[in-house]
């Protein structure tokens, strides 16, 4: 809504006729291949496809995320606990605690899936988003206000997510896995979003 990113679609990428550097090309190829592997081919491949690649919608992202989250758990041992394939909060906590444990020989808890090597989902998301933003010319420094407030929001969301046993993604995942506790958390999250949106609207209308 108040996002700072520019519309998706045709970001300028170099002068026409100039071939992409190999690394960029490889990245695009792999993105298209992974998109295809999940069951949706880019519409009109090779016809009027803009240079910036196909337009990725939220539905595409949702389907890919669902498949990858289940596959990570079922095929690549991202467990226990159950329904642990993707979680921004728990995996970030695992990485942080694992690193502190390794450096300072402390005994902070990590999930069993992260005992030997930590899960790197958060690092991957960050790097993947950097690559996407750079490739489409959408990387720029933006400095909005209230750093103290956003810091507090971050701390609160992480604390609440660890209390509930999952961020927004994993609560959805647990619900999809048929866990009643996860469904309760998901319902509460939806209620929180509704109330938060009312609060935003109320504050804007004053």
């Amino acid at each position: 809504m108040t996002d700072v990113s520019v519309p998706v679609g045709r970001a300028p990428s170099g002068p026409p006729g100039e071939p992409d550097p190999p690394s960029r090309f490889a990245l695009r190829r792999s993105a298209a291949a992974s998109a295809k592997a999940e069951g949706f081919a880019p519409q009109a491949e090779g016809q009027t496809r803009p240079r910036s690649g196909m337009r990725v919608t939220a539905v595409h992202m949702g389907v890919v995320a669902g498949v990858l989250a289940v596959a990570a758990e079922a095929l690549f041992d991202v467990r226990p606990p159950e329904a642990y394939g993707v979680c921004m909060a728990c995996h970030g906590r695992d990485l942080l605690n694992w690193t502190i444990n390794a450096v300072a020989a402390t005994d902070l808890p990590v999930a069993p899936a992260s005992l030997v090597y930590p899960l790197l989902t958060t690092v991957g998301v960050f790097l993947g988003a950097v690559a996407a933003a750079r490739r489409h010319g959408e990387f720029r420094w933006v400095m909005p206000d209230h750093p103290a407030k956003t810091f507090l929001y971050g701390a609160l969301v992480m604390t609440c997510a660890l209390v509930a046993g999952g961020c927004a993604i994993r609560l959805t995942l647990r619900t999809a896995a048929g866990e009643p506790l996860g469904a309760a958390g998901f319902g509460a999250m939806a209620a929180g979003i509704v109330l938060g949106t009312w609060w935003l609207r109320w504050r804007a209308s004053r």
Binding site: A161, L171, G185, G192, I193, L195
Partner: peptide, 15 residues
Amino acid sequence: TIAGGFGVGYVSTLA
């Protein structure tokens, strides 16, 4: 879990 989930939703909306 319900309290945590509510917090995640509410604060994430504000953030």
